[in-house]
Simulated scan of single mutants.
Amino acid sequence: MSDTQDLLYVIAGAALSVAILAGWREHRRRRRADPDAVGWVDWTLVQVIALIVAAIAGWVALKA
């Protein structure tokens, strides 16, 4: 396994961690007690982008 593959696996793992965190934050946002206390981060978009990055990095790591 090369250093490039290792780096790509780390990137995929980090992106997957960000996606899980974003999913948890979106769940908390939907269940908040004060509906007027809106946040400024679109957690769904963060989750989708992180999942795309994880998929691409994982695919490239497998092909390398």
Rank of each mutant, 00 (worst) to 15 (best):
S2C: 09
A33S: 13
A12V: 04
L62Y: 15
L51F: 13
P35N: 10
R25L: 03
V18S: 07
I56T: 15
R32T: 13
L62D: 15
V10N: 05
A55M: 13
V38W: 06
V10H: 05
I49M: 13
A64D: 12
D36P: 00
A33I: 10
E26I: 00
A50G: 08
T44G: 15
A22H: 09
D42V: 01
G58I: 00
A55E: 11
A19R: 08
S17P: 00
R29I: 00
I20Y: 07
A54C: 10
V18Y: 04
W43N: 12
G39H: 07
L45Q: 14
R25H: 04
W59C: 03
D42C: 01
A50V: 10
L45D: 15
V18F: 08
A57S: 15
P35E: 04
V60E: 09
K63W: 05
V18H: 03
G58T: 06
W24N: 05
G23P: 00
L45C: 09
R28T: 03
V41I: 15
A64L: 12
S17M: 07
R29H: 08
L16N: 11
I52E: 14
A55Y: 10
L51H: 12
L62G: 15
K63S: 13
D34R: 07
H27F: 10
I52M: 15
L21F: 12
E26Y: 01
A61Q: 07
D42W: 01
I11K: 01
D6S: 09
R25S: 05
A37S: 14
A19F: 01
S17T: 10
W59G: 09
V18D: 08
I56K: 07
S2K: 05
I52H: 10
T4G: 01
A64I: 11
D6F: 00
R28W: 03
Y9P: 00
Q5K: 13
R29Y: 04
E26S: 07
V53T: 15
A64K: 11
A54E: 10
L51C: 11
L16D: 13
A12Y: 03
V53L: 14
I20N: 09
R31T: 05
L45F: 09
D42N: 15
L62M: 12
R25Q: 12
R30S: 03
A57T: 11
Q47P: 00
K63T: 13
R31D: 05
D42A: 07
E26Q: 14
D6C: 00
V41M: 07
A19S: 12
G23E: 09
